Computed example of a mutant assay.
Amino acid sequence: MPSTAGSTARTGTTARPDTAGRIRRFATAERLVHRATGCLMLLCLLSAACLYIGPLALLVGRRPLVATVHEWSGISLPLPFLLGLPSAEFRADLRRLNRFAVYDRQWLRAVRRRGATPGARPAGKFNAGQKLYAGWIAGAVLVMMATGLLMWFTGLLPLISRTSALFVHDLLAWAITFVLIGHTRRALGDPEARLGMRTGYVGRSWAESRHPRWLKEEGPDAGTDEPDDPEP
């Protein structure tokens, strides 16, 4: 059923066409949260590499400073998320990411079939892979923060040794690194998706091919007002 103007305002939808025939996919708050989180994650991983990889540690030096940067970049990772919560569009996307629909299972089955084209994979604003990635990375960040705090404040939970916390922290750090490499490779292979995250707008043909349920759910007349948030 097509969305009305009132339902658009309530759900915080971003499917709004502009005068060039493109559709608004992400609002300013969503893009800023993504960029800030990405920068903090990159800083955290680079500082970790300078602490644990011998040649890099010798090259960079200043180990206490690097350790401080690593600790505070890690503890700050949830900050962009918290600052983005006042945005209705951001909260609407969180609800989308937290909802696994029947067509998401169809998307996963299509992915497992070799030769399945993106157009054969039904997806809403976020496909099943993006939902799984978002849930996994959110959980991994929380575990990384918990184990990091246990190493930072060794007496926080006496029953858990620093060695155990360090083992889980290091193992999960490698897992996050490989997952982020895969995420980056996927992004590099999809220029239109990168454009949507950079400017907020994507082409209608791309949306119809990659996220057909998104347009169907929002309706053809959803949010026909002019763009009101130029690229920051």
Results as ranks from 00 to 15, higher is better:
residue 81 F to C: 08
residue 63 R to A: 14
residue 84 G to C: 05
residue 86 P to F: 04
residue 82 L to H: 12
residue 85 L to C: 06
residue 65 L to A: 14
residue 71 E to S: 12
residue 71 E to K: 15
residue 74 G to F: 00
residue 66 V to N: 01
residue 84 G to E: 13
residue 88 A to S: 10
residue 65 L to M: 09
residue 60 V to S: 01
residue 78 P to I: 15
residue 88 A to F: 09
residue 88 A to I: 07
residue 66 V to D: 01
residue 87 S to F: 03
residue 78 P to M: 13
residue 60 V to D: 00
residue 79 L to P: 10
residue 69 V to E: 07
residue 66 V to I: 04
residue 84 G to N: 05
residue 88 A to E: 11
residue 75 I to H: 13
residue 73 S to G: 12
residue 67 A to P: 08
residue 76 S to W: 09
residue 83 L to V: 12
residue 88 A to W: 07
residue 73 S to F: 11
residue 71 E to D: 10
residue 84 G to W: 05
residue 81 F to T: 12
residue 67 A to V: 14
residue 64 P to C: 02
residue 86 P to W: 06
residue 67 A to K: 14
residue 75 I to D: 14
residue 74 G to Y: 00
residue 78 P to T: 15
residue 86 P to A: 04
residue 67 A to F: 07
residue 85 L to A: 04
residue 75 I to M: 15
residue 79 L to A: 15
residue 74 G to A: 04
residue 90 F to D: 01
residue 61 G to R: 03
residue 66 V to G: 00
residue 64 P to E: 04
residue 77 L to S: 11
residue 85 L to G: 05
residue 63 R to C: 09
residue 74 G to T: 02
residue 80 P to L: 12
residue 78 P to H: 12
residue 82 L to I: 15
residue 69 V to R: 05
residue 87 S to H: 03
residue 64 P to V: 02
residue 73 S to E: 10
residue 82 L to A: 13
residue 69 V to N: 07
